[in-house]
């Protein structure tokens, strides 16, 4: 196990990269990101899966190589495989994905009585954030965000920047509050109690970029705008998708406190140069947010709090433009 993996693809009108890093090599609870594209239909699915290390800290067994695996480790990989299976082997009905996952997880669930009980425990717990997309004509790409937990999916475009198209399963959906408070999840994929796979559909003008990320990427920055800055400044210094993927891996291990995984699909660009050129207009916007944070003296929490709030107030409207409304309980 290397603790790091980068994969990429460059094809006509389609660019993709996935990045996966572990905090502790061999122990990472994020699954390797999922990316499958079917050229014949113009459809694809991209997703990330973060095994919930708190709720799923219990042992799940030992691998063939002798490595001990937690329930969280197993859940993220298993759910990734189930989403891939849903895309490849079914009619891709969004409403069926929950049943597809839940049925398989219940079958996989162990029957041994747990010695440690309580409401914090889950069996095979993981987040998922996936985008099923279809690019059927030249103008727009249709997408459906499918998620449970606090991993996120985004649309990134030159006009409005990074826009979250999922809503975290936490009491608050305020991205700054989520950064500062680290609240518990109210829903996640698991085998021992009901869960929900949310669905939000939309369409975006092509060319566009679709992004899925676990909280290792966006949960350890100072302001929500800083995650977009990470994406764009690594893009700016790259020449290919491979380089961008590697730059994203290099960047995240420098600041995250967690396993981190991210997947990017760019639709409708003539090549990497156009992708970089088209998004370059956003770079200055988010760089200004990052520069204000960087200028704060270390330890000056009062100024940090004020600047952070100001940054979020200015960034929030575009960032939440495509965020689904909270579903009634």
């Amino acid at each position: 196990m290397t603790g790091r993996g980068v994969a990429w693809a460059e094809s006509e009108w389609l660019l993709a990269a996935s990045v996966w890093t572990e905090k502790k090599p061999g122990r990472g609870e994020d699954a390797e990101p999922l990316f499958v594209h079917q050229f014949s239909s113009g459809e694809g699915v991209v997703g990330v899966f973060d095994g919930a290390g708190g709720a799923g800290a219990a042992a799940a067994g030992t691998s063939a190589s002798g490595a001990e695996r937690t329930q969280a480790w197993l859940a993220s990989r298993f759910t990734r495989a189930l989403v891939e299976d849903w895309f490849v082997g079914t009619d891709r009905v969004h409403e069926d994905l929950h049943e597809h996952i839940a049925t398989a997880l219940v079958k996989a669930r162990g029957t041994a009585r747990r010695k440690i009980l309580g409401t914090m425990r889950r069996e095979l717990p993981t987040t998922m954030a996936a985008l099923h997309y279809r690019w059927g004509d030249d103008e727009t790409a249709e997408w459906a965000a499918l998620w449970a937990g606090d991993s996120r999916a985004y649309v990134l475009d030159a006009q409005d920047g990074l826009q979250q198209v999922t809503r975290d399963d936490t009491e608050s959906s305020d991205a700054l509050e989520l950064l500062t408070q680290d609240p518990p999840m109210t829903n996640m994929v698991c085998a021992d109690r009901p869960f929900e796979v949310h669905i939000a559909r939309g369409s975006t003008k092509v060319p566009c970029v679709l992004v899925c990320a676990t909280d290792g990427y966006f949960g350890y920055v100072t302001t929500p705008a800083e995650f977009e800055d990470v994406l764009l400044r690594t893009l700016e210094r790259s020449e290919t998708m491979q380089q961008w993927g590697n730059a994203l891996a290099d960047e995240v291990v420098g600041y995250t406190g967690d396993d981190a995984s991210l997947a990017i699909v760019a639709l409708g660009f003539t090549g990497f140069s156009q992708l970089r050129h088209d998004l370059s207009g956003r770079t200055a916007v988010v760089r200004e947010h990052a520069a204000q944070i960087a200028a704060i003296a270390p330890g000056d929490l009062e100024t940090l709090t004020a600047v952070r709030a100001d940054s979020w107030a200015r960034y929030r409207e575009d960032y939440e433009r495509l965020m689904p409304v909270k579903e009634p309980r």
Binding site: K115, I116, M120
Partner: peptide, 27 residues
Amino acid sequence: LFFPSEAGEGLEEWEMDEIINTIANSL
């Protein structure tokens, strides 16, 4: 989190690790 026992009697080291990890991690 609940470890049914007489004040934790019978708790193995690895079980305590599991409890600590559950609390240390986010939910």
